[in-house]
């Protein structure tokens, strides 16, 4: 058994003295993965999210029907062998629509996270690092955005820009970056006074270099965790926008919009609203669980 650990990839990852920078980094990542995997619920969340990605990717192969195919003869059919999740008011297969809807949800969530994390990180670290009037101006801008409830702000922007997925992403990003900037600034305030930043200054490092190589790596874990946990809110808000008719437009199979139309048939066809509702619930739950697990791994204060 011992021999097995000395050779191959495992041995390379467990070697007590790393022989290269890449190996040292890989060992750290491997340790992180092991800790993440030890958290069962986080692992379950991650597995569910991976499943969603695969479903979104292979949607045309998995979906039993065309999500836009209407069939008035098969309106509001309850879940059955032919239609696992039933059909909606136009006779479209709900399972197929939910499968295609995964693409829209992931698209919104990933794009929003991809906009929010860098913007929040840059604004927050610059404000915290330089302080003074730069901090004052940036933080007042953040205050203005924080003063509005995020859904209301998103609503206002979508109304101004016009409904649609891209505009929903912009609106959600505008509402979601200020808390990230706040977080990054708070972290930066403690980091900039640290001895290791003083040491970098003693070595003649430029402000840009200090922010890039000392401040951002320390802020990144908490920002990543926050953005991940935020993704659940983004998914819910996106569904909310869809529900109000301001997100994806019909006939696109967005979960919130599906939920909204299902509302009319709640009494005699519960599955039309319940199925997309469950999809939203499970997805945001999975994101939350995975985010919690990620925090345990990344955030040094939770060691």
């Amino acid at each position: 058994m011992d021999d097995m650990y000395q050779h191959g990839v495992r041995g390379w990852l467990a070697a007590p003295v790393p022989a290269s920078a890449a190996q040292a980094r890989a060992q750290q990542i491997w340790l992180g993965c092991k800790r993440f995997a030890a958290n069962r619920s986080a692992l379950a969340g991650l597995v569910f999210l991976l499943l969603l990605v695969i479903v979104a990717w292979l949607a045309p192969l998995i979906a039993p029907y065309n999500p836009f195919q209407q069939s008035l003869a098969a309106r509001l059919m309850p879940p059955s062998a032919a239609h696992w999740f039933g059909t909606d008011e136009l006779g479209r297969d709900i399972l197929s629509r939910i499968i295609y809807g995964t693409r829209i949800t992931l698209y919104i969530a990933v794009l929003t996270a991809g906009i929010v994390a860098p913007v929040g990180l840059i604004v927050g670290t610059i404000a915290g690092y330089f302080g003074g009037w730069i901090d004052l101006v940036l933080m007042r801008i953040v205050d203005v955005f924080l003063a509005f409830p995020s859904l209301i702000l998103a609503l206002a922007f979508v109304t101004a820009l016009g409904p649609g997925i891209e505009n929903a992403v912009i609106a959600l990003s505008l509402a979601a970056w200020p808390p990230i900037a706040r977080l990054a600034r708070a972290e930066t305030l403690t980091i900039r006074k640290s001895d290791y930043v003083a040491a970098m200054r003693m070595q003649g490092a430029s402000h840009l270099r200090i922010i890039w190589s000392d401040v951002i790596p320390m802020c990144l874990p908490s920002v990543v965790v926050r953005v991940t946990l935020n993704m659940a809110i983004v998914i819910l808000t996106a569904a909310g926008l869809g529900f109000l008719g301001l997100g994806a437009q019909p006939p696109s199979p967005e979960w919130g919009a599906m939920l909204s139309t299902g509302r009319e048939f709640m009494m005699n066809a519960w599955w039309v609203a319940a199925m997309p509702g469950i999809a939203i619930l499970l997805t945001s739950l999975a994101v939350n669980l995975a985010g919690d697990g990620l925090r345990d791994v990344l955030d040094p204060r939770h060691d």
Binding site: M202, Q203, P217
Partner: peptide
């Protein structure tokens, strides 16, 4: 150059020794 008091605070927790010395 300066040597700081607390070696637990004056080394960046996420930087390899190699990077600390190469920078």
């Amino acid at each position: 150059q300066m040597v700081f008091q607390d070696p637990y605070a004056s080394l960046h927790p996420r930087k390899m020794v190699e990077k600390v010395l190469r920078e």
